[in-house]
Design a protein around this nucleic acid. Structure first.
Length: 147
DNA sequence: GCCAACGTTGGC
DNA sequence: GCCAACGTTGGC
C-alpha cells in the first residue's frame, strides 16, 4: 500500500464536505498539474491519504482512501487530465498543523515541506506513521491512540 | 492582500 | 530547445 496527501482549500472543498459523501466517495477533480496527475495515476484502490486544508486551516484533518483508480476527469474534455476517487475514513483526533510538520525533524523531507505547491503528493511510510502518531492515530489500524 | 516560488506557455 | 513572460498556488 502507498500513502499520499491531498490538498484542498476548505472554502472550495472541505473535509466536512468530503465526509458527507461517505462510502460513495468523491471524484478528486480539477487537478491540472502533471506531477499531481502522475501521482494519481500511480494510486491503487485501498491506498491511503492525508486530507490537508490549504490556505485556511493549514493542517491535516483526516484520512482518506482511494476508492476508484485514475480515470478521465469528468469536469473537462481535455484528455490529458485524469483523477481518482477518494472517500473519508476517519478524522485526525488532533489535526496536525503545517507548523508542527515543519518543526519535526523526521518530517523535513516530506513533500509538504519540500514541494509546497504540489497538490497531490506522495508520503513515505515513515512519514505516514509519524504524522498519524502526532495526530493521535495508529498509522496501521487507524484507531485512536491511548493517551 | 502581498509576494515568492514555481509551473506553463509561446516566440524565437 | 531556450527562456522571458505570465499565471497560479499557498504561506504569511
Amino acid at each position: 500500500m502507498k500513502y499520499w496527501l491531498f490538498k484542498s482549500e476548505p472554502f472550495k472543498w472541505s473535509w466536512d464536505q468530503q465526509k458527507a459523501k461517505g462510502e460513495a466517495g468523491e471524484e478528486w477533480d480539477g487537478i491540472r498539474n502533471y506531477q499531481a496527475r502522475n501521482n494519481m495515476r500511480e494510486m491503487k484502490i485501498g491506498d491511503r491519504g492525508f486530507f490537508y486544508h490549504s490556505n485556511e486551516g493549514l493542517e491535516i484533518v483526516g484520512i482518506v482512501e482511494v476508492s476508484a483508480e485514475s480515470a478521465p476527469d469528468s469536469t473537462t474534455d481535455d484528455e490529458r487530465w485524469d483523477c481518482v476517487h477518494i472517500r473519508a475514513l476517519t478524522d485526525m483526533p488532533e489535526p496536525v498543523t503545517l507548523k508542527a510538520v515543519k518543526a519535526n525533524e523526521k518530517l523535513d523531507k516530506m513533500s509538504l515541506v519540500t514541494s509546497m505547491r504540489l497538490s497531490v503528493q506522495p508520503v513515505l511510510e515513515d512519514e505516514w506513521m509519524e504524522v498519524c502518531r502526532m495526530g493521535g492515530l495508529n498509522g496501521k489500524t487507524l484507531k485512536p491512540l491511548k493517551r
